[in-house]
Design a protein around this nucleic acid. Sequence first.
DNA 1: TAGATTGTTAATCGATTAACAATC
DNA 2: TAGATTGTTAATCGATTAACAATC
Lengths: 210, 210
Amino acid sequence: MAIQYKKVSDAVIKRLPRYFRYLAELKEANVQRISSGVLSEKMGLTASQIRQDFSCFGGFGQQGYGYNVESLHSELKKILGVDKGFNTIIIGAGNLGQAIANHSKFEKRGYFLKGIFDLDAKIIGKKINGLEIMNMDSLPDFLRKEKVDIAIITVPREVTAEVADLAASLGIKGIWNFSAMDIKVPDDVVVENVHLSDSIMVLGYRIKNN
Amino acid sequence: MAIQYKKVSDAVIKRLPRYFRYLAELKEANVQRISSGVLSEKMGLTASQIRQDFSCFGGFGQQGYGYNVESLHSELKKILGVDKGFNTIIIGAGNLGQAIANHSKFEKRGYFLKGIFDLDAKIIGKKINGLEIMNMDSLPDFLRKEKVDIAIITVPREVTAEVADLAASLGIKGIWNFSAMDIKVPDDVVVENVHLSDSIMVLGYRIKNN
DNA sequence: TAGATTGTTAATCGATTAACAATC
DNA sequence: TAGATTGTTAATCGATTAACAATC
């Protein structure tokens, strides 16, 4: 029942947002309770795995009943940190950076955009989703004043390493990296890579071999 | 030495684009050969794993020498299908769809954008990266004429299932899904999900627990 | 040749699945 | 109460790592 006795494995962590999504859907559909068996069919997992996964964080269910959708959803919210939320900035206001800035869904999930930065004088000052694109020069000052958890990096490949180092040195806790390049930063900064071209290449491979 | 005796595991497949990226970098830096040991240090894997991975596709190396960068790169190119390439369309020309359309990197990796489709009359006809946004109505005709392998789906959540079914019924071989929703299509269509909000939530979890 | 490094077999480790007592 | 379903322990499966003979 306590919180996290042993290290939760990567495989489990990656399934958490998916559970969270399905629970949100069930909640929206006014489903009150769900068993691991029924959820497993919906999600294409085994019931066993679902119970194992949840048991990493303590028991949320009840024998003979299953899981209360509302309360399981809210537990996941806490586990994922969505309840307290995270502050973010975007570095690199190109097409992708702007698309992410406009993606209001993230705010709903507890990721609040606090600033957008770029080097290009032509777009500095332009407003995206209510925020003015700022000059990269003002980033250090900005981060000294504002509490920002996550830097979303959408800059060209050539400057990725430099920007990541800068963000890390300014106290950012996590980097969401969209560059087709692996980032190396100290252990106190967490990196999550998106690597879109890796993803489409996996798709290509699978098409070829399907 | 033959091609693929047994099914290659998911874990291996997901590492392939990463190998491909590192080999491209080495090639660019004019490195002629590399051993699994040196590559493993660069990539943060074990040398054993690298040799195991490559051996799924036949032996590309030479005892006492290692791997020839150029030829290993070109083998990976073939394995991933990048040599022959894939034709793609984008369905949903919102912020994200347009950002992907403008991302010229994909063309370099063998993913050729052939059309962009949307429902919104206000943007139909607008040119993105040299291609006019077309009306969704013209999609069936378009797919009958053009050989398209991949549909990149960047539509709002509510219409994702419908659009995916349509694409599948029109002979698309693979779907690259950016919607925060799992897609169900017949087995002859491959789906690769990006799920950006899942990804940022994993980052949030890791920050909280780092 | 001697040294280096592969491809592969065997050993280990970790994740998933199965089974079941506990209990709502 | 009887039936359902959990949380957890044990069994299985698969992926990673280690070891080494083969050989360039």
